[in-house]
Nucleic acid binder design. Sequence first.
DNA 1: AGTGATATTGATAATCGTTTTCACTGTCGT
DNA 2: ACGACAGTGAAAACGATTATCAATATCACT
Lengths: 156, 156
Amino acid sequence: MQEKLRQFQRYLDKAGLKATRQRELIARAFFATTTHVSAEGLYRRVAGRHPRIGLVTVYRTLKLLKDAGLAHERQFGEGRALFEHASSEHHHDHIICTECGKITEFENYEIEALQEQIVRRLGFLIRHHKLELYGLCRECSAATGAGQGIQTAEAG
Amino acid sequence: MQEKLRQFQRYLDKAGLKATRQRELIARAFFATTTHVSAEGLYRRVAGRHPRIGLVTVYRTLKLLKDAGLAHERQFGEGRALFEHASSEHHHDHIICTECGKITEFENYEIEALQEQIVRRLGFLIRHHKLELYGLCRECSAATGAGQGIQTAEAG
DNA sequence: AGTGATATTGATAATCGTTTTCACTGTCGT
DNA sequence: ACGACAGTGAAAACGATTATCAATATCACT
């Protein structure tokens, strides 16, 4: 957290931008999140303690965090964008529960390799990709009783 | 084309909806497209000859075409939705050229199988997925000279 | 073909997430 | 501390899509 904050300030400095109170508050709030947040959601967190901060500034700061390489913006389906920490880890993809909205991350080397093959074959030069699986998470599929497709140990 | 049009009319009839002049014109224009169209784009095609048709009606008719199972709506990145014919063929995914916007379709059984594995492992019940590869198509990568990554016969 | 119930249309306004505008305020190098 | 100039927030603008509503068209029934 402190390290990421420092990275952000270093970025601002290098880019000739100013390290303002608002930017620090918003960045702090962002780094304190564990899951994906929308601009609005982050705004609510910050505005709770600092009501004078505007939603616009949250949008602007999130853009800066992206530029600094510290945040990724994701578009799941339609509607609002969600932001997540940009870790130095591998690229990952997402599974989105259509019932409760829970987002689970995963990475799979083989899928990436297959994508690479396809792209080569078609003569494309790939820049990035987006793989999203939509469905019901374990809890929601249990709750709605939409059981088929789930294999559990006791099923056998 | 005629067959799809008939399917649409059958759907309207079954749903207790009316087969209007506008709906036929818009459906015709849609079935006449070969690639992905936006509502706006389809509107422009229709409005060329029939200026009294409103964009709103195009949106509404596209929704009906979806309901009839004759169109799919796609959200590529941010911005406007694109519509494509819903063929009875297999599910397919897309490669989008970030330069010229060209959209190429592909399908790959192995990727689907791997997705299935991952989903099982995580206890999710998958409903649908979305795989999009973004990059430069053959023409655009040649044009911009961003050559690396492309393997051609004459390269050896 | 005519009628009438009701679905449909199109212009306009509304919506939603996001970005711009702009007058005022803050930051930071000097 | 000063001043140039970047940053702020409120409100307006924006683009894609949807809702509203009065006027119009369709279609089952005669």
